[in-house]
Write a protein that binds this DNA or RNA. Structure first.
Lengths: 123, 123
DNA sequence: TTTCGTTATTTCTTTAAAGAAACAACGAAA
DNA sequence: TTTCGTTGTTTCTTTAAAGAAATAACGAAA
């Protein structure tokens, strides 16, 4: 390139390359940042409702994300239990925990990619 | 990982890692896939309106994208001319052409990243 | 049997994004 | 001076996403 990209751009703070990643199948995404954080919080709280509340997400949307995710996994990612001592709750399957771990590693590699690209803006 | 990620997921066609990239400043994105394609079509057609029409984008949205982009560059990316032989038109500055070229190269590297990550799903 | 809070689901309302339509200003060419 | 299609801008309408609220079913524990 003739000029540095950052010399074309003018802004108070330096520009960065940012982005988003997800898993998709047949052009439909089913596992992105939203579901990941939701699963992590369900693992902590044991409840879809509480996890959604922490994320300021409506229960309906949380349920939809989970339902969509379950439709894409051989075994469901979340096992719900209605009724019981505390009214019920939800637990994650080992497969869901593995998906979380996978996404953490994926995010790490993506972060490195983005930082490398942001560095190139000023070269 | 204990299991292959693809063995956790169940779908007709294989899952892929996909994503989106953009340039942002102070948490506001100003140069992503939409503006890039718009610029490319303005370069071809010499007209914001025609470029937008080809993308089935409203003129208003096209103008907003361009206006937002111009606000982030030292020199405007698009030079409009109202009136004239054909009613007017718009041309890209050399800086805009460089931004387009930069984004092409960025996309290429991102594509490689995504393909590598998709490959890892089945390992 | 009663109580509890959660899951699952529907319906309604609100909000935000997008689009449609209309119109003045513009300036080169005829 | 008239014509032309575009730019720039406003206002209104439509559409889509999101959220709010209400409610039945559930089952362990007291």
């Amino acid at each position: 390139m003739a000029k540095k990209v950052k010399d074309i751009l003018a802004m108070a703070k330096h520009p960065v390359v940012n982005g988003s990643l997800w898993l998709e199948s047949e052009d439909k995404r089913f596992f992105g940042p939203g579901p990941v954080e939701l699963l992590e919080r369900i693992a902590e709280t044991g409840s879809i409702r509480q996890a959604a509340k922490e994320m300021r997400m409506s229960y309906k949307k949380a349920w939809e994300l989970i339902n969509n995710l379950n439709a894409h996994t051989i075994k469901p990612a979340v096992i719900p239990q209605t009724g019981g001592e505390k009214g019920g709750g939800s637990v994650l399957t080992p497969e869901a925990l593995e998906l979380i771990q996978y996404h953490r590693e994926l995010r790490k590699r993506f972060k490195e990619f983005l930082e490398k690209e942001t560095g190139k803006l000023g070269q």
